[in-house]
Design a binder for these strands. Structure first.
Lengths: 213, 213
DNA sequence: ATGTAACCTGACCAAGTCGTCAATTTTTTA
DNA sequence: TAAAAAATTGACGACTTGGTCAGGTTACAT
């Protein structure tokens, strides 16, 4: 019967596709699109190379599948920027959520970064539009806060870029972050300190008012 | 005579090497190390491929030469962080200098970023130590400012990471920046607005004090 | 049991890759 | 101008790559 067939079908397909995407994420994030060999993905997935091509018709298809999968992850963090929230708390939660996500998914983060650096060749127009729309909406929220006098009048789009950049950095450029912090590897504590610094700097600035009197 | 020989030697050698490094920077920055074909470098340099190998013994040698060349560029921006300066002005000038450099050398910036993302495979230990030392020295300056009560007590190393990340972003992730700002291409005005936003946000924070009274 | 659809895979290919080399031309020196 | 040094280059070879395919096996419905 079709139902049972589909079920097993799902099981084997789903399992293999999951494994392939999983190890492919790892390799792509370390070697980039061109540096990645299908043979290496096959090896790590413990499948013959031809079997990879049974599920995916090309290297690009695997790559695109990974990108499409990870974009939605950022939406959750962005959801913190809502008009009905207190700006300070919204930004704090956003920064923490974004850092948390990037700390938990460094490979996806790096893969995406390397894709953008090389010109966003495989980032679908749909995904780009989705991200643009998300940015537009949050920018509107921030402009509302500014109009209400609850925030300084900064360009919300550049502000987003700043936050995105600061949070991504720790995963994307981990070797640089390690050097800057004198670490062999980044720990959860380092991500906490990063959140602390970013939140404090963004919210309050770093320059103290001159001593009163 | 040796002097004359060296002179012409310099001319032809220097010229070809300059051309090769120049076009190689372009290709490497767009395609990454593995994606770059020596044949393409040769074509753009208008030299036969074998001639490239007359000056460089491998693809890696070209790549490393480029990296070594660009690191010194950042030192100039960092020079703004000096103990004898007013913190606010020092940071403003640093941010502007860094953004200016990255706007003028986007290819080098991207090449470096892609090198780091892929694990800093070819970044020499010497270069890494150099960057670490530069960070250490500026961190000490900032700690001095904090001790003097001229700055909020933020972790200077995370602060540097923030500034580095925010300034690099516009070149490294230009497609994302374009999407976020609704642009086809970034202009000098956009870099000005970026500097304005970063400086204002970092220095003063974005949260206004509650209206007095 | 048996037919069928899904799944698996070793062997293969055409296209491209980096890097080499021997032979030639150009430039410099004496 | 002749010898030497530097620069140039077409052709080539060993190797790797993404992708194909025909023929096999496994899982399942009936």
């Amino acid at each position: 019967m079709a139902r049972t067939a589909e079920k097993l079908d799902e099981k084997i397909r789903a399992r293999n596709i999951r494994i392939i995407l999983d190890v492919a994420t790892d390799v792509f994030s370390r070697k980039g699109f061109d540096g990645t060999r299908i043979a290496e993905i096959a090896e790590l997935a413990e499948l013959p190379k031809a079997n990879i091509y049974y599920y995916f018709s090309s290297k690009e298809e695997i790559y695109s599948a990974i990108i499409a999968r990870l974009i939605s992850g950022w939406d959750d963090a962005l959801a913190n920027i809502r008009a009905d929230r207190e700006p300070a708390e919204a930004f704090r939660d956003y920064i923490r959520a974004k850092l948390d996500y990037t700390a938990r998914h460094p490979r996806e983060s790096r893969l995406f970064a390397s894709e953008i650096i090389q010109g966003a060749r495989f980032l679908s127009l749909k995904d780009r539009r989705h991200m643009q729309k998300a940015t537009d909406e949050r920018a509107a929220v921030i402009e509302g806060w500014i109009a209400q006098g609850r925030m300084a009048a900064v360009d919300p789009r550049h502000l987003f870029i700043m936050l995105w950049a600061a949070t991504q950095f720790y995963s994307d450029f981990e070797p640089l972050a390690c050097d800057a912090l004198n670490r062999k590897k980044l720990t959860a504590k380092d991500f906490d300190a990063a959140a602390e610094t970013i939140v404090r700097t963004i919210l309050g600035g770093i320059i103290l008012p001159p001593p009163s009197r």
